[in-house]
Every structure is written in C-alpha cells, then in structure tokens.
Write a protein that binds this DNA or RNA. Structure first.
Lengths: 191, 191
DNA sequence: CGTCACCTACCGATCTACAGGTAGGTGGGT
DNA sequence: ACCCACCTACCTGTAGATCGGTAGGTGACG
C-alpha cells in the first residue's frame, strides 16, 4: 500500500497547489507554501514534482482530465450541460479563481501555461461549434454560424468569471449565462 | 523647464512599465527592467515612484484618465463606439495584454489592482446599462433588461481579448464583437 | 559678485528576504 | 539489504528597498 500512499500524497499536493495558485497566481505561488499545506518541506515536495513547472504541468493535466471526463461528451458539450457547468463553477470559486488567475498570467510572454490555454481554447471552440451545430444546425436563430458563435459563448463564460470573482454579489453568473443562452435562441425563444 | 523634463520622465517610466507588465505581469515585472528601459537604474526609478506598488497605481490611474476621457461619454458609451473601441484595441495588443494580465492577477488575494478592477467593473456595468437603455429602452429585443445585458457585453469584450491574445489568428475579435452586438439586436436586426 | 542654504535627480553599495534547486543523508517498511 | 519517502544543510540568484552620497541648479543675502 505504499503506492497508494504516494498517489494520495500527489493528489494532496495538487489540491494544495490549486489553492495556493488561486491565492497568489503561479508566479506568486511558492513551493514552500504548497509544501507547508500538505505538511512537507519544500524539498519533500520536490521529491514528488522535481520543479515548480512540473507541478504546474501536473495541475493543468489534471484539469485536462477533468474536462475530458465530466461535463463533456465525445462530440462536445451540450448546451444545457453548459448551463449546469456554470452553476457548478459558481459553487467552486476556488477552482475558478485558480484557472482565471492562470489564464491571466498565461498571456504574458513565455508563460508555461500559455500553450496549454491556447490549445485548450482551440479545442473548446471546436467542440462548442459542434454542440451548437447539433442544437441549431448550420444557422443559429440570429443568423450566425456555429463557428462564429462558439468564441462568443466561450468569451461570455470566461468574462463572467472575472466579474463574478471580483464581486460575487454584483453578478449572478449562472443567471447571466442563461440570459446569454436565451439570446442565442433569439426572441422566438423556448422556455 | 526642469518641471517639464521631470514630467516627461514620469511619462516614459509609465510607458515602460506598461510594456514590462504586458510581458511579465505585475508580479513578474521588476523595477530594474522598467528602469533599464528608460535608461535609469532601479534606484533612479524609485526616485520617481517610491515603491513598486506606487508605480502600479500610477499605471492604473493613467488608464482611468484614459477611459474617462476618450471612448466614453458623460452618460456612458454608445454601442457603435464600443465596436470602434474593440477595433482600436485590436490594433494595440500591448495595452490589451497589459490589462488582461493585470485583470487575471487581480483576482488573487490582496492584489494591489483588485480594488481598481472591482470598482471599474461596477462603473462599466452601470454605464453600459445606461447605454443600452438609450439604445433600446427598458427591454432589449431578446427580452432582457439593460442591467442584465450589461455584464454580458462586458464579459464578451474581456473574454474575447484572452482568446485573441493567445491566438490572434484564430479569433477575429472585432468581427466577433459585432456578431454579438447583432445578437443583442435580435434576429429582426438592422444592417 | 560670491557664497551659503537648499532642492532635484539621480547612482553605488548594501541589506534583507526569500525562492528555486542540489547534495547527501536517515529511517521505516518490505 | 534495499529503496522509497522524506529531511537537513546549503548554494545561488534575485527582488525590493534603504542609506548615503554627488553633481548641478536656484535663490537670497551680504
């Protein structure tokens, strides 16, 4: 059962890293503070993840696994699932904060998460377009194509997160997202 | 003309700070690298802005002056001006990158720009709601109120910026924003 | 006219504080 | 006996900030 213990440690470390990144971003995060949170020394942590960047990569990979399993389908998301995803996010400000902070940093030059987010967006847009095509066909009610609407859906989700993180009481994130989806359906909308 | 020289220096420093923050974010930016860009030592820079945070504040204040002058009206923006603003931004990736990086960092705990962005969004949403009310009255074509649509417009602008910064060739930012505005007008849209 | 007081705009040296990473252990479990 | 999971000790680099200058200018006054 040593293997199990080790895997457990790794999971703990990733959880702690997620928290620390949420609080201070990747650049602001220190190995020491992550280690402390799992009851290790900084060097003990380096035993599991040999560099700070390796730890970040592990965090991103876990995220990747997460979004490739739940919430998503082989052929993409479904629109009603997107709404639940936003609701789910609204209950997990920590995770949202982690990835919003990372996204923000990632636009800077040579940031280790930059490639991750770039590729992720490419995929997300593509699968979003699929989703929209399944839902609406080649033309959405407003006259847009799925490919042109996809970046908008994505943008709304991300943009709302920042507003919500900064001032949760000022923005009803899930409600606002539903409003946007209704907009996609046009004025001739369903319930 | 000593005064003028000094003011010029300060302006140069702010320009340099903007660049460095775009490249590395606030946390990643160093006083030394800003100083170097204006031909000063770090200590020389501290003569003008006594702390790193003071420099950031100056950058944010300048931004504030900028937003409060151009692009905006006493009673808020106008929708067509918003479209031009997005076009303008698309020609200035540096500035967009600076403020996107700062926004991302600002969601972390105790970040010196947090309050700035929180308040800024409050104002932006309010003046956006005014704009929408002037344009559409109390109900937008899709059935939304101006207050509920305002966060969406803001979210789209910000969200598109991240996608565009990460992969400019993948997203036509101004085009996508126009698509969104058309969505606001409903399927019964004008040209 | 000179010089004394004082200001602005810096620079060099240095302090303190971490931060990430390396080397070389030690101890318990199998 | 071995190795996995750590730890102690340590090194190196860097960042922000302070201290104490210096060079040049300005103005007031005898």
């Amino acid at each position: 059962m040593v293997r199990a213990r080790s895997e457990e440690r790794r999971a703990d470390i990733l959880r702690a890293a997620l928290e620390v990144i949420a609080e201070r971003g990747y650049r602001g995060a220190t190995l020491g503070s992550v280690a402390e949170r799992v009851g290790l020394t900084q060097q003990g942590l380096l035993h599991y993840y040999p560099t700070k960047e390796a730890l970040l990569v592990a965090v991103l990979e876990e995220r990747d696994r997460w979004d490739t399993s739940g919430g998503r389908d082989r052929e993409g998301w479904r629109l009603d699932l997107m709404e639940s995803l936003v609701e789910y996010n609204a209950m997990r400000p920590g995770i949202v904060q982690t990835f919003s902070a990372l996204l923000g940093e990632s636009v800077t030059d040579g940031h280790p998460a930059r490639e991750f987010f770039t590729e992720r967006y490419t995929q997300v847009r593509a699968s979003m377009a699929d989703t929209l095509r399944q839902e609406f066909g080649d033309r959405l009610p407003g006259g847009l194509t799925p490919e042109r609407a996809a970046p908008l859906v994505t943008a709304v989700m991300d943009g709302l997160q920042y507003q919500w993180l900064l001032d949760p009481s000022a923005v009803d994130m899930p409600g606002a997202f539903r409003d946007f989806v209704r907009l996609l359906y046009g004025s001739d909308a369903p319930a």
